[in-house]
Design a protein around this nucleic acid. Structure first.
Lengths: 137, 137
DNA sequence: CGATAATTGAGACCTGATCTCACTGAGACG
DNA sequence: CGTCTCAGTGAGATCAGGTCTCAATTATCG
């Protein structure tokens, strides 16, 4: 997995430097909803001299390459997630709780939209929002 | 429509003050993907002495009441949208283009999740991301 | 009429993100 | 082997959006 993304970076003509590897590794450890600050911390644990700017630059690079993608998780703010595949949450508008689920009915639609709009689709995000059990009433 | 949301504010025990009305009106004019800065600008056009803090406070209030909800649109950053109903986009990871579409296959799933997780669902967001026609290759 | 509480605007402040710039290190090439 | 070039980097200045504080205002109610 790391190997695959590292390859993507290289074949796109960018160098696979230790700072970039550290960011990639950081992203693949930990869960799939890390804030930039968490990525920075983890990556610095791997490669201590790593600077903040480099992390942001790398995240931007990885985003443009379609490896990673920012999503907005209510309370947590912007988080990074691997771009491939789907992400499915319910978010409580009141307390910000995030619940994940697995069912996903969008693959046909994905196909169809890809063809109709000539879009090369790599992943998706499906979020429901409302009130969780605790916050109702 | 405005009336409805205004009512919601009142019945939740909050005062429907001119600043809050201005924010509500601002949200309902314009499109459904306004950044906070745009909301501020529009609301100030309606009620010039309106302060920034009040707009953010009101947006937070409206979010907690489930009237409005922040979503993250790639390049544009965080935007506000009316919480009710669905929002459907394709977003290009490279250039940030946003394309909307209407088809939406999630209503059954919505039902089922609502029951299973005891979540009172008010709206949803379905985003596909990948590369648009221009950015491929 | 006070008393109380909610709401507000102004501006200080904070924090996360971006920019600048001098420096490094890895190839390209004679 | 020197040295040129240039992508990549870290440090820190800087910026921008959002939050917080606080005094003033307004509404409500007894």
């Amino acid at each position: 997995m790391e190997t695959r993304h590292a390859k993507t970076v290289q074949t796109a003509g960018f160098k696979l430097t230790p700072p970039r590897q550290a960011v990639l590794t950081a992203l693949e450890s930990g869960d799939d909803h890390m804030t930039p600050a968490e990525v920075l911390a983890r990556a610095q644990a791997i490669y201590p001299s790593l600077g903040r700017a480099t992390v942001y630059r790398t995240l931007e690079l990885l985003t443009n390459l379609g490896i990673v993608r920012p999503i907005f998780l209510g309370e947590r703010g912007v988080c990074l997630t691997l771009a491939e595949g789907g992400h499915h949450h319910l978010i409580c508008s009141d307390c910000g709780a995030v619940v994940e689920f697995d069912e996903c009915p969008v693959s046909e639609l994905e196909q169809e939209l890809a063809e109709r709009l000539n879009f090369q689709i790599r992943g998706h995000l499906l979020e429901f929002y409302g009130l969780c059990a605790q916050c109702q009433g």
